[in-house]
Nucleic acid binder design. Structure first.
Length: 667
DNA sequence: GATCCTCGAGTTCT
DNA sequence: CTCGAGGATC
């Protein structure tokens, strides 16, 4: 692609990037005039050749205009932004240029600091008293936010002596994560709107016209730069500046550190990156500044950024994308789950094109519509989510998503039980999607564990009407399997062997695999233990099923109804006839063993054994193994890379065992 | 009746 | 991992 088409694509990309900075980060990096210039050029290209117009082109939307309600403040010394580097190579190039300009061969001393995800501010103290605070704005003029900044507790109204006659310090106002989450939780409880991320929360709080509202917001600030200073010589290094700021009582990052050369910078970057999620505030990268002021002065400035400092960004974990459509998937139990199909977007290190919206209420709460521009996040947790819709960019005429009346797969009526979040297809096993998902569940690792029977194979088998129920799987021939696409003789033989292996199973696995509503792994085990055999369970009435621990009226009714169905009874007989067997279990009332009465939670990665093996070893000794940490948990076994569960255990003061500790205990 | 503890179900990508 | 909801407990 060359010529106008390539240029148009480039312009769209640039504009999207600026939109992202504007809407998501609230931190535009180009003046409005530059944005307008790019937009004008794109419009001209598209007017000359309408074929160049794409649906997601920024020319196709209605623009919103930012309001200005605060008094303007001119910055005597411009507030510059920083140039960004996104990788090691670009950082090396930056360092090389600095060396060349300085005519210096030895490694340079840098001060490395976290780049906070907040709002840059300039705060002035005259004779030690806080006089004025301003946002960066476009760099030469910002907004007067003195009243709001005064409410930030970590920021002194009066500097500690000896304070210079005048000090304009520059820093970042931000919202610590704990405060952000608390504030959003409270807002949600009151039914108010929540903030998309800490950055927007900080920006919104600072722009509050009513300073009493800002005062209630958990804002904080850290300082790192100098605007003006009078009555005292400016420090001759960045380290000296940080020391001065600290000495007059201003908050300064504890993470700031002097490092030597590019290698020192990279080491700092990797270290901070690894600890990023454990920091109490959100950061989007690292800033390196050449330490010595004499060197800073010799390097000077580019048009709008200093040549002696650079921001090294972490890969973004939020990005903008466009919703192609919202589809409804049908699950094993018939649940209709809305899924947003997105324009593929690279976020958090992977390309995301599908995002679940959980249920229809969630869709309406976030008000996601086809064609909407949305903010997609894939943060520490793996599963991407739609954080919010950028309302300003909604295409005209976009209609709200509605729950389908009929199942999109089989056309059966969709029913939504009053008070329940989920809507269900009533088709049961007549619905192809439900049959397919039920088979996949039956074959899954924790059920019959049929290796090689993945979604593609099952989809084919169901589509060709070769398999309708689990028992049909065991009647498949090598020839039938080998006829499937992407399935050769070898794979077919492997799958048959896996099917053969799966015939020797256990009662809990079978019960789980049948897919009775509300019967998962744990409940299946409890039922198996209590009744000992499938026959005993099938013969039991609702009341006796309720006597199983943790089974109440709802679950008991589902179990009884399942086995009352003639189709299910036939299906089970067919499985037995196909040769599926499982040993009966000895019914046991309560567990005994050395660890009886103790509850364990296993988290993280173990090295010498799998989590399943650890679980079995514990259960064999009479312990309970649960999935969630609470006051009732006796021990948490934490392998490497343990996450929130370990944190929760520490918070609740629950003893934590490492892998060795677990071994000792088992011995 | 309220609250806490669990379990179940659904989901993404490499 | 998160959310919703069932079950147990006070």
């Amino acid at each position: 692609m060359t010529g106008p088409a390539a240029r148009a694509a480039w312009l769209r990309e640039q504009l999207a990037l600026h939109d992202y900075r504007y809407y998501v980060l609230d931190d535009p990096q180009v003046p409005d005039a530059e944005y307008d210039r790019l937009m004008r050029e794109l419009r001209q290209l598209e007017a000359a050749d309408p074929q160049l117009v794409t649906a997601d082109s920024p020319t196709q939307r209605v623009a919103g205009s930012p309001g200005a309600a605060f008094r303007a403040v001119a910055h005597t010394v411009p507030m510059l932004s920083l140039d960004n580097v996104f990788n090691e190579e670009e950082l090396r190039a930056f360092d090389r240029r600095a060396h060349e300009r300085l005519g210096e061969d030895a490694p340079l001393t840098y001060v490395a600091e976290p780049k906070l995800d907040g709002l840059a501010v300039a705060v002035t103290w005259r004779d030690g008293l806080l006089e004025r605070a301003a946002t960066r704005g476009d760099g030469s003029t910002g907004e007067d936010v003195t009243a709001n900044v005064r409410t930030i507790r970590s920021l002194p109204q009066r500097l500690r002596a000896p304070a210079p006659a005048l000090l304009e310090a520059r820093g970042e106002v931000f919202m610590p994560l704990a405060g952000f989450e608390r504030m959003n939780r409270e807002a949600r409880e009151r039914g108010e709107k929540v903030f998309v991320n800490p950055r927007n929360a900080a920006a919104g709080s600072l722009r509050q016209l009513d300073a009493r509202i800002s005062a209630a917001r958990p804002l904080a600030a850290l300082f790192y730069g100098l605007g003006r200073i009078e009555g005292l010589a400016a420090p001759d290094s960045q380290q000296g500046l940080l020391a001065l700021l600290r000495s007059v009582g201003l908050p300064v990052s504890k993470e700031a550190r002097a490092v030597q050369g590019v290698e020192g910078c990279l080491e700092y970057y990797r270290d901070l990156g690894a600890r990023r999620s454990a920091l109490p505030y959100q950061i989007d990268g690292v800033v390196y500044k050449i330490d010595r002021r004499s060197e800073q002065e010799r390097l000077g400035f580019l048009s709008r950024a200093p040549r002696w400092a650079v921001a090294h960004k972490f890969p973004a974990d939020e990005a903008l994308s466009v919703v192609r459509e919202v589809e409804f998937q049908v699950g094993r139990t018939g649940t209709l789950t809305p899924v947003a199909r997105l324009e593929p977007v690279f976020v958090g290190g992977v390309t995301v094109s599908n995002v679940t919206l959980h249920n229809i209420d969630e869709v309406h709460r976030k008000d996601v519509r086809s064609g909407d521009t949305v903010i997609v996040r894939r943060a520490g947790d793996v599963i991407p989510e739609i954080v919010a819709v950028v309302i300003e960019r909604r295409p005209p005429g976009a209609a709200p998503v509605t729950l389908p009346q009929c199942c999109p797969v089989c056309g059966s009526v969709v029913l939504r039980v009053e008070g329940e979040a989920a809507a269900r297809c009533t088709g049961g096993f007549t619905c192809r999607a439900q049959r397919q998902e039920a088979l996949l569940h039956f074959a899954s690792r924790r059920a019959l564990d049929i290796e090689g029977l993945g979604d593609k194979v099952v989809e084919q088998l169901v589509e060709r009407n070769e398999v309708a129920s689990p028992a049909d799987l065991y009647r498949l021939s090598a020839a039938q399997l080998a006829a499937l696409p992407r399935m050769g003789e070898k794979s077919a033989a492997n799958l048959l062997a896996a099917l053969e292996r799966s015939k020797h199973t256990t009662l809990p696995r079978l019960l789980f695999g049948l897919g009775i509503r509300d019967v998962g792994e744990v409940t299946a085990l409890a039922l198996a233990r209590h009744f000992g055999s499938l026959e005993a369970l099938m013969a039991a009435d609702e009341d006796s099923i309720q006597r199983v621990p943790d089974v109440g009226p709802v679950v008991a009714a589902h179990v009884a109804a399942f086995f009352a169905s003639a189709a299910h009874r036939t299906g089970i007989r067919a499985l037995q006839e196909a040769g599926v067997t499982w040993p009966d279990m000895v019914p046991q009332a309560a567990a005994d063993g050395v660890l009886a009465g103790r509850t364990f939670v296993i988290t993280g990665t173990l090295t010498g054994m799998t989590r399943e093996q650890a679980q079995q070893a514990l259960v064999a000794r009479g312990a309970r193994v649960s999935n969630s940490v609470s006051k009732k948990t006796s021990y948490v076994v934490a392998g490497s890379d343990a996450g929130l569960k370990l944190a929760k255990a520490q918070e609740l003061g629950i003893p934590v065992l490492d892998e060795q500790g677990l071994r000792d205990l088992l011995r």
